[in-house]
């Protein structure tokens, strides 16, 4: 319980610090997430067999990966089978204590940028090159769009 609080508080300080002077620039925060995710995946997957395919990897992100970081699973995973995945979390950790509606909606991007990077970094280390964006309509629900970049 306390460990989670430390993580939450550290994250909110990270958000405040990286967005202090440049209000609309979330790239630093996203990159911090990226390198965290990239390294984290080494530790998390050490007892896993190799993933069958892309969908299998996404399922791992939605279940075990999400559980180890946010203590819950992704509520909904959708895909068009052409490289676009939508992960929906109905009570996203970093938005839970913020609001349960549209109040503070303008601040929501700041609190999801790190996680976008986290997902992108993890996928990158698993061999999937992607672009991750997030969408918040009504807090604390958050949708992460993953677009796999094929070259």
């Amino acid at each position: 319980m306390l460990v989670e609080t430390v993580f939450e508080l550290l994250h909110s300080e990270l958000v405040a610090y990286t967005t202090e002077n440049k209000e609309n620039d979330l790239s630093t925060l996203e990159y911090l997430g990226y390198s965290t995710g990239y390294r984290l995946i080494e530790r998390l997957t050490r007892e896993y067999p190799r993933f069958k395919d892309e969908l299998d990897t996404m399922k791992f992100i939605c279940t075990d990966f999400w559980t180890s970081i946010y203590k819950k699973q992704i509520d909904n995973l959708r895909t068009n089978h052409q490289g676009i995945y939508v992960l929906q979390d109905n009570s996203f950790r970093f938005l839970n204590n913020l609001s349960n509606g549209s109040q503070y909606l303008e601040y929501a991007p700041k609190f999801v940028a790190f996680t976008c990077g986290l997902v992108r970094g993890s996928l990158a280390n698993l061999g999937i090159n992607s672009t991750v964006t997030a969408e918040v309509h009504s807090m604390p629900t958050c949708k992460f769009h993953i677009q796999v970049n094929r070259t």
Partner: peptide, 21 residues
């Protein structure tokens, strides 16, 4: 839960609707 852990609270009178609810 809803004030101290709200990253947007800065010690001023509470404005969060979630907390009030």
């Amino acid at each position: 839960e809803y004030v101290v852990k709200n990253p947007l609270w800065n010690g001023a009178p509470v404005t969060s609707d979630l907390f009030k609810q």
